[in-house]
């Protein structure tokens, strides 16, 4: 392990022959050890494909991917000993209990029976599942399954963790619980590659990130860099018709240094001082006699990042709808 990078992805491409989908198109990035690295993008951007390649589940068509200097296709067995994988689809065995699931993963990760049992107990406690540990997983809630899945990825104490949308589809409380665990892992010094659809999540954990869309990296840097491309607040104003929206856009375009978008009867501008600019916008519209249908102020979402980066909306869903949790097959 002389390589200075925990993850080194160099020019990786992957095409799925079925439907001729280019999942990854010459993707390159590097992750330093001990870092939380974010892979941000909408559904279908290629995040999961990348994680599957790095966790040796899938082979790239071209390019090389290394984990701690080991090529994932040539030294897959060694790589598997150093990684933990937790997916957005909680892959735990429904028919086994929580404790049995962890013991199974322990045994399959070459722990002795005694160690597997001890580790299972530790992790159940750590994830607040001690009481549920002896119940079959089919009785678990979505949040509990996700915690168990994350626990399973930690059984062998891997130095590299791949967390693939760990909080997608979770309720706010479960999401906060998971965040706490991720924070603990971070302070324990694990290297984490985290994929997410949520800007908030990336902002909270990631020192550095890449934004992927259609299998390409469209932006990279720190969350601060990314946000700098946006304002602090998105002001969305709707009008009676599209022509009013266009007229309004003309009068408001100088309000912000960030671009203004017109979408049918609605305009959106990202600004740094939400309330002040909003008041000014309303004054101008009133003076011009343009009637405002509605006005919404919100924090920029991933969608807004995409809008700013690409000038178009993400064409997957809006990032808030989780996919069906269980049905899954290599796409």
């Amino acid at each position: 392990m002389t390589d200075a990078f925990a993850v080194d992805v160099d020019n990786v491409s992957k095409v799925f022959p079925k439907g001729n989908v280019t999942a990854l198109d010459h993707v390159s990035f590097r992750v330093r050890p001990g870092m939380v690295f974010g892979l941000l993008g909408p559904n279908g951007a290629g995040k999961t494909t990348l994680v599957r390649i790095l966790s040796t589940v899938l082979r790239p068509d071209s390019g090389t991917a290394k984990v701690f200097g080991l090529d994932v296709t040539k030294h897959d067995d060694e790589v598997r000993r150093m990684i933990g994988l937790a997916g957005q689809y909680a892959t735990v065995d429904e028919n086994l209990t929580g404790s049995e699931n962890l013991k199974m993963v322990g045994r399959l990760s070459r722990l002795s029976r005694v160690d597997a049992r001890t580790r299972s107990g530790e992790l159940l406690e750590m994830f607040g599942l001690s009481d549920a540990g002896s119940r079959p997983v089919k009785t678990y809630s979505g949040g509990m399954r996700r915690r168990l899945d994350l626990a399973a990825s930690l059984v062998a104490r891997p130095p590299m963790l791949f967390l693939d949308e760990p909080t997608t589809g979770l309720d706010p409380q479960s999401r906060k619980d998971l965040w706490r665990v991720i924070e603990e892992l971070v302070s324990a010094g694990a290297t984490i590659l985290l994929t997410t659809q949520y800007l908030e999540e990336a902002d909270r954990f990631c020192e550095s990130l890449v934004v992927v869309d259609h299998g390409r990296i469209i932006a990279e840097g720190t969350p601060a860099d990314l946000k700098a491309t946006l304002g602090e607040t998105v002001v969305a104003i709707s009008f009676a018709d599209a022509s009013s929206a266009l007229k309004a856009a003309e009068r408001l375009s100088d309000l912000s240094e960030h671009p203004l978008f017109v979408d049918g009867e609605e305009i959106e501008l990202t600004v740094d001082q939400g309330p002040k600019i909003t008041a000014e916008a309303l004054r101008r519209l009133d003076a011009a006699g343009i009637e405002v249908g509605g006005i919404v102020l919100r924090e920029p979402s991933l969608d807004d990042v995409f809008l700013a980066l690409t000038g178009k909306r993400t064409d997957a869903n809006d990032g808030t709808e989780p996919p069906a949790p269980t049905k899954k097959r290599g796409k």
């Binding site: 599957r52 966790s55 040796t56 589940v57 067995d77 598997r80 000993r81 990684i83 994988l85 997916g87 689809y89 892959t91 735990v92 065995d93 429904e94 993963v105 399959l108 990760s109 070459r110 399973a152 062998a156 269980t326 049905k327 899954k328 097959r329």
Partner: peptide, 15 residues
């Protein structure tokens, strides 16, 4: 097992 993603977990384990 394939459909539920369990095989994926097994594949990522050093087994």
């Amino acid at each position: 097992d394939l459909q539920k993603g369990l095989i994926e977990r097994f594949r990522a384990l050093p087994m």
